[in-house]
Amino acid sequence: MNSWQIFWNRVKNPGTINSILTGLQNTAVIAVFGLLLGFVIGCLLATVKIIQSKNPAVKGLQYLADGYIAVFRGTPMMVQLLLLHFAVFIGVKIAPVAEVSLIFGLNSGAYMAEIIRSGINAVDRGQTEAGRALGLGFTAVMLKIVLPQAIKNILPTIGNEFISLLKETSIVSVIGLADLTRSFKAIADSTFEYFIPYVALALIYFVMVMIITVVIRLIERRLNRDKR
């Protein structure tokens, strides 16, 4: 039997197919929910950071937000995962996939905050002022005028964030979570064939990244068409 046949026989095994599909599902869930949670956290942090107020409570929140962003951006994802999983969330009863999604969301939130904040700042302040001058409240101006433009501007950056998030999920096997990478590592380890399984694994990630890229481009084009 050559390497290819060994690999293929292994993959055809229903148990293996199942573990690959589970792995794929876990990877996707972590990436998608990590992104969504990151977006929500990022919006909250960005809002806190752009409020202009001398109120000490607001100032305090702003320092907290700065600290949060600095810590999550200043340490490796892997270290955050190990620390949060083995030391912080220990004893918390929560499904492992949910926990890991949460951890990725916390990390992504720090990056998203900066992305969203710069997107909001790039929308010229005149529009906010014009909205306020018409008697509209801060929230209405933010949600209907500033954010739609900001999001359109930062969409490519969010796409990149999603792609790095997806690729980064491959480290979750260090805490024993059955993701896509782990399912292929199992194949490699049990067949002593490394090249083909890992190339196949790389290919699957690559295809996922390509799909995301195309989808983002389509959304972007759509948004631009509305503006004509």
């Binding site: 010229d124 005149g126 529009q127 002022e129 014009a130 909205g131 306020r132 001058a133 018409l134 008697g135 509209l136 409240g137 209907k144 005028i145 739609p148 433009q149 359109k152 503006k227």
Partner: peptide, 28 residues
Amino acid sequence: NLARRSMGMVFQQFNLFNNMNVLKNMVF
């Protein structure tokens, strides 16, 4: 916000809402 409703403000830089068409700018 109530006060501003009775004071129209026109800016040097126009400041139309770029994500809305003309009609939407006006009725929003």
